[in-house]
């Protein structure tokens, strides 16, 4: 028996919009810890890891660990039928091949049940150990999205370099090149507007902008994005989901031939 009630149902809607273009099918795992997902894109270049902790739900019942294979496009279609203020409850049962999404209006005067078919998905879980990163950049998520969008109109790849001067985003394409530097900036009143750079060592890595631009679909989930970089590791682009958990995107770098 599974019953997860989320007052702020719009969070789930936003999560789906953030990942459905990167990953088409995935297993949602439900345990005492929370509602989670780990899935790679079809080319195994990028990975999304989602955690919505059980404490963040208004009601959380998960009698035993359950994995639900879901077509994310279909789930997104159903969640789009929930109003922006609706409370969403996810209901499932062991041994059934469906999941039900219940939408309740704030005034409780409209209740909708959407039943969706589940599917069998071979899960390929990657073990991702905790790592020390050479540089961690925290910046406004909207600023990062703007940079990725702007650079994506010039080139296909972005070189992200962190030095003590700041974080530099560079691209080159047929029409020319572009270079954007963001310096550390903590002197603002609103901490979410700050750019904070923690650097142990300078680092410079190249990534496909197509994926970065896909990750920025999570911008609506958090005002701040954290970018963790090490020369030996995929980049981690993390959006915290207020009081509930996170959505993390991992992206393998490109290397010079």
């Amino acid at each position: 028996m599974l019953e997860l009630r989320l007052i702020q149902g719009s969070l789930l809607k936003k999560v789906l919009e953030a990942i459905k273009d990167l990953v088409t099918e995935a297993n949602f795992d439900c345990s005492a810890t929370g509602f989670s997902l780990q899935a790679m894109d079809s080319s195994h270049v990028a990975l999304v890891a989602l955690l919505l902790r059980s404490e963040g739900f208004d009601h959380y019942r998960c009698d035993r660990n359950l994995s639900m294979g879901i077509n994310l496009n279909n789930m997104s279609k159903m969640l789009r039928c929930a109003g922006p203020e609706d409370i969403i409850t996810i209901k499932g049962d062991d041994g059934t091949d469906t999941v039900t999404f219940m939408f309740e209006s704030q005034k409780q005067d409209k209740i909708s049940d959407f039943e969706m078919k589940l599917m069998d998905i071979d899960s390929e879980h990657l073990g991702i150990p905790d790592a020390e990163y050479q540089a961690i950049v925290r910046m406004p998520s909207a600023e990062f999205a703007r940079i990725c969008k702007d650079l994506g109109s010039i080139g296909d790849t972005v070189v992200i370099s962190v030095t003590k001067e700041g974080v530099k985003f560079f691209t080159r394409g047929d029409v020319g090149s572009a270079n954007i530097v963001c310096r550390q900036n903590t002197s603002v009143d609103k901490p979410e507007d700050s750019t904070v750079i923690e650097m142990n060592e300078p680092v410079s890595l190249t990534f496909a902008l197509r994926y970065m631009n896909s990750f920025t679909k999570a911008t609506t989930l958090s005002e701040v994005v954290t970018i963790s970089l090490s020369s030996e590791l995929p980049v981690v682009v993390e959006y915290k989901i207020a009081e509930m958990g996170y959505i993390r995107f991992y992206l393998a770098p490109k290397i010079e031939d």
Partner: peptide
């Protein structure tokens, strides 16, 4: 020219 690495070059499958 650049080569796109895959995640399994860094992490192992559980």
């Amino acid at each position: 020219n650049e080569t796109q690495l895959r995640l399994d070059a860094f992490y192992t499958f559980n």
